[in-house]
Design a protein around this nucleic acid. Structure first.
Lengths: 247, 247
DNA sequence: AACGGACTTTGCGCTGGATCAAGGACGCGA
DNA sequence: TCGCGTCCTTGATCCAGCGCAAAGTCCGTT
């Protein structure tokens, strides 16, 4: 099992760090909560006054696992990796967050994963307790968030199937197709997928080693299934990928 | 990857089957919703009038994946396995359900897994839409269920780490420790763990083959770490198991 | 344009767990 | 008590993916 899983990266869990933020007033009518289509506009308007903006540079940590969850976040731009680490350094990247995604939505009093920026990131921050108070008076919004959490759980089960039962090829194909689908959903439809995460992040997400990920990418490229381009991949044989990832 | 994953078992997803149920009135003060400690008594009283009782025999299906989720359930007695199956028969058991557990709590309009009985099972059934209506007027109860869902998601992430990064030994040890902890929580504390599921279920849960599960059990037994007994295992060297499963 | 550092790719040998193949244990119905 | 079906165990062999080592690529910096 990979011990080389840890990029020199940021210190793990600066124990109580809350990222810098400033009130959001006066930014005019820029929409900060960008949940793609998942939250109706009216509900975003309810939430927005409560939010403060956060900005992170690459590799900065938004929060660490087991830290008290003082905040809930909604990603505005950029991408983050969400992960857990075992004492011996083995890492599982449980997912990646993109614009529109909520972080800390389970509203538990501690974060269950760490989150750090893959590149420059901006997000909306909500004081968790205030957020919960608001929800108590907004059953409909609460229901929406519950539904989002339900979908997240369903995707977690997809991951279990993937990690427990699928081959390396299938994992990579599933990963690429899933990422494309997500990009479509947030309006970044394109044949060429940007991959803001590195090979090691993908490996730790899919339960593989960096070498296996790299080899599989290379082979898919050789087979004209994908085309590796700087910073991402172009999905060439979409059908074959879909067949490989079929569930 | 194991193709022998499917016990002769029940037909997969009888497409629209709702298990037999009958009104619950007149059972006196037997408590049907048995969420261990997770739900306060007052809230159970709110829910109970809405429920009907369901009984299943071994191998009967409570619901199938992708079936419209007309109901939500709370397990009263017995145990179920929750799983997904790929077209080629590979199976991932996403979890097991025990007394007190809610099923279908994400309230999505379709079930995301199949659920069938490992032995005789009884459960409370709620009409999902009525259940949701009730919740809209009970923000506090809604919050509780959201929290439960959050914990479920957290355990799903534990599973990702386990499936993606841990060895066979660690998986088995983690499984046994986790099961014991759950038994403690529902008041079935005991050194001897009953295992209502078969080796194949455990294998499909942990992303292993039945042979590896069997061999690992045998070795742990030989090493006096556990003692295999009919229908379960006795945890002999609790500390070593805990060390193996350490996170 | 030369250097250094981080990341990625590739070759090669190895191994943990899968696969294949026999038996063994147990319960149940005739 | 026997026979049968289901589940579990054990041995022998195999192989997908791992671990190690060495280049190769791409930047940003000087």
């Amino acid at each position: 099992m990979s011990i080389h899983s840890l990029p020199a990266g940021p210190a793990i869990r600066p124990p109580f760090h809350v990222p810098p933020s400033y009130p959001v007033g006066g930014i005019g009518k820029v929409r900060l909560i960008s949940l793609a289509t998942a939250l109706p506009l009216a509900e975003r308007d309810t939430l927005e006054p409560l939010s403060r903006r956060v900005a992170l540079d690459q590799k900065e940590t938004l929060y660490g696992q087991d830290e008290p969850a003082v905040s809930v976040f909604n990603v505005s731009s950029g991408a983050l990796r969400l992960y857990r680490i075992l004492p011996d350094g083995r890492r599982q990247v449980t997912g990646f967050a993109f614009p529109g995604d909520f972080l800390g939505l389970s509203l538990l009093d501690r974060f269950t994963v760490s989150a750090d920026a893959l590149g420059p990131v901006t997000a909306c921050r909500f004081e968790r307790l205030a957020f919960m108070d608001l929800l108590r008076g907004q059953p409909c919004l609460m229901m929406h968030l519950h539904e989002i959490l339900g979908h997240e759980l369903s995707r977690a089960k997809d991951m279990m199937m993937l990690l427990g039962r699928r081959t390396a090829d299938e994992r990579i194909a599933t990963f690429l197709m899933g990422l494309q689908e997500r990009y479509v959903r947030i309006g970044r439809s394109s044949v060429t997928l940007e991959l803001p995460m590195g090979r090691l992040d993908i490996a730790d997400h899919l339960g593989l080693t960096i070498e296996t990920v790299s080899r599989t990418f290379s082979r898919l490229d050789r087979d004209h299934c994908i085309l590796i381009v700087p910073g991402g991949v172009r999905l060439v044989d979409h059908d074959r990928l879909a067949r490989m990832s079929a569930h």
